[in-house]
Design a protein around this nucleic acid. Structure first.
Lengths: 203, 203
DNA sequence: CTCTAATATTAACAGCGTTAAGTAAAACAA
DNA sequence: TTGTTTTACTTAACGCTGTTAATATTAGAG
């Protein structure tokens, strides 16, 4: 690509292009292989150019995570509106979807939940207005509804949400870092885990 | 320290010294700050010297993990012999101990369970005769006893073990990577999580 | 005292994220 | 059209990283 064509672009468009290339790269090759220099090579620009559109590596990775959290959040709301009858079943489906999302996007899940640098502290998260915050509240509401409807025990809501999210975190961590578990086995484990928990919380 | 004193040491002894310094360094400053070059500086040797006693960085970190897994494994056996009456209570205590161990040694737990390079695949783990394998079998036996005694449902043993270990993984992941959660809160969450699971599996 | 084997070091390679300084082209002003 | 400013990008560099090859130093054996 010549210099001329490289130039005639709008800032926003180019930012999206970089993000797209980064997403592709990151999803397919994972956190370990991802580097700014290699990304630069892929998009055929010098490494420093990326810094004109993203503050730093974390900023770029954050953008990738937010994209996917956006998709997740949207789907989560769909689940909540489609299955409004039984709050426990809604919560169950939401949890299974979270797990499935993690199993299908392990690199993003890893980045979002198993990395400190990208998402920082809870305060920074709130300040940045991250999507992650939205989904947390969504789960909190779902749990609250289950308790209000009298179907689950009156355990502290935040503690209960934590335990449920923790179950998902653990599953993904084990799948990512543990031995190469066949995906259908993860599915069975996910089901068993969620059901055991929800039975355990049943009134 | 002069060059002379540096020399007059037995290989094994020096290896243990390096390991000790590495453990200290790693525990207190964590994975991110740990580097071979900084460790070398701390023990007042050149970076390459470490490579005469450890194959590479992962090999050194693996040794640190095995140390701590050794302690954990020993304590786990103590729990099993001290509380042999009620298999479910034994399992419960073992799980809580695993979680507590993780909360108190987050850096090692992270290294062991949330890192691919150090512990590798399950096959490599078995080949290396890792302590991790022992503790897995210990949990499997405990779960089997609970089922045999008729106190827990007849869920597939390996699936059940996975879900229980997963719960621990998730808790530690959330504590390590999530917002700075006060430790006593993690304790409550751990209790709630374990009890909900065991109730859920109750016959 | 010399030779060998063990032990430790220096120098180097290839990679990383990131910043400062420099260049070339486009946009704008006169 | 000419001159100037702004924008977009690159090159060079800093200070890190893990690791290897080649080299120096030393201890102990003969």
């Amino acid at each position: 690509m010549g210099v001329k064509e490289k130039r005639a672009r709008y800032k926003e468009e180019f930012r999206r292009d970089i993000l797209g290339a980064a997403r592709e790269f990151f999803i397919h090759e994972g956190y370990e292989k991802f580097s700014m220099r290699r990304l630069a090579e892929k998009i055929d620009y010098s490494p420093t150019t990326i810094y004109l559109y993203f503050k730093n590596k974390d900023d770029l990775l954050f953008a990738i995570c937010e994209e996917f959290f956006g998709h997740f959040s949207a789907q989560l709301n769909r689940i909540r509106t489609v299955l409004p009858r039984d709050p426990v079943e809604t919560l169950r489906q939401a949890l299974l979807y979270l797990m499935n999302f993690g199993l299908e996007n392990p690199n993003q899940y890893k980045l979002i939940f198993f990395t400190k640098s990208v998402y920082g502290t809870r305060e920074e998260l709130v300040e940045r207005g991250s999507m992650a915050r939205n989904t947390y509240f969504a789960f909190k509401e779902m749990v609250q509804e289950c308790i209000n409807s009298g179907k689950l025990r009156e355990v502290d809501v935040e503690v209960m949400v934590d335990t449920l999210v923790i179950a998902s975190h653990g599953l993904i961590a084990k799948t990512i870092y543990g031995a190469a578990v066949p995906k259908d086995r993860s599915g069975i484990v996910a089901l068993t885990l969620v059901d055991a928990l929800l039975i355990g919380y049943r009134k």
